Simulated scan of single mutants.
Amino acid sequence: MDLLRLIKCLKGQKGTTLVELIAAIMLTAMLLSAIAGVLSTSMAAWRNGTSRTDVQQTARYAVDSIVRDVKFAKSINVLSFKQIEIVTDKYATPNQKITYKLDTAYSPYILRRSSQPVTGGSTNTTIHISNLEISVLALSKNLLPKTIGIKLVAEDLQTGQQITIETAASSIFIDP
């Protein structure tokens, strides 16, 4: 019996009109465009956050490498504001000379430690050290550099994110 009643009820139905169909399509399109806008904004924010993290890690790694070698230096020679030479016994070789230099001959720039790249040197990276400034902050009694200042700027070439790190480092083996 219920089936007969259902069939009678459905016989009076005519279906959807063209206006109703167009309205449903327009509402769906508006909903999808709103979702796409939110997704696009979220992806852009995620890319910027990732870029900032990568730039900061690159800059911190470069500065930490220089500071670590300066800390154990027997002598420090600032060759230019983009180049420093350190003599250390920290590694297996006594009186080993380590040179840090910002190599601007390549794009992106490469920070080198004794000719080996510390940062950069890869064609698939967009992060590079755009500036390096090394200065003498304090001298020992013998007028040799004991404390140096380091200012390093790292940049992501795709997003334009930039990080500047400034620090000072002193050798524990150079007498004050």
Rank of each mutant, 00 (worst) to 15 (best):
S114R: 05
I110K: 14
T125H: 00
V78M: 04
L79T: 15
E20D: 10
L10S: 14
K74A: 12
T147Q: 14
Q161G: 06
D156I: 01
K82F: 05
D64E: 15
T159R: 00
T164I: 14
L31I: 09
L6I: 13
T93G: 05
D64S: 08
V136E: 08
Q158K: 15
S33G: 04
V67K: 10
S170Y: 01
T93F: 01
F72E: 15
S65Q: 11
V87Q: 11
V55K: 01
G121S: 03
D175I: 05
T104F: 00
I174T: 10
I134S: 12
S140V: 06
W46E: 04
K151M: 09
A59S: 01
A29L: 15
L152S: 08
Q116S: 09
L132W: 14
N95Y: 02
V55P: 02
T88I: 04
P117M: 07
G12Q: 14
A44L: 09
A29P: 04
K151G: 06
V118Y: 07
G37T: 11
L3M: 03
K82T: 15
G49W: 02
G15R: 07
G12E: 13
D2P: 02
F81I: 10
L18P: 06
A24H: 04
Y61D: 05
L32H: 00
S75P: 08
N95S: 11
G149S: 13
V55H: 06
Q162D: 03
T58C: 04
K97N: 06
A154Y: 09
K8W: 01
K141L: 10
K8E: 11
I66P: 01
D54M: 14
T147F: 09
A44K: 07
D64H: 04
V70F: 06
I84L: 08
A168E: 15
H128S: 13
I165Q: 03
S140M: 05
E133I: 13
F81W: 05
N124T: 15
G12H: 14
S171E: 03
I110R: 15
L3P: 00
L27P: 07
G160V: 05
T119I: 06
I150N: 06
G120K: 08
K8H: 13
K97I: 09
I86A: 03
Q57V: 04
G121A: 03
E85Y: 05
I7D: 09
T99P: 00
L137S: 12
S130Q: 08
G121K: 07
T28S: 13
Q96W: 00
N95C: 01
Y100M: 07
Y100K: 10
G37F: 09
V87L: 08
I110P: 04
I86N: 01
F72Y: 15
L39T: 11
Y100T: 04
R112T: 11
Q96D: 05
E20H: 08
I25K: 01
I84D: 04
I174K: 12
S33F: 03
N48H: 09
D2W: 07
N131S: 13
L21W: 10
T126C: 00
D89N: 12
V87T: 14
L102E: 13
A23V: 15
V78L: 04
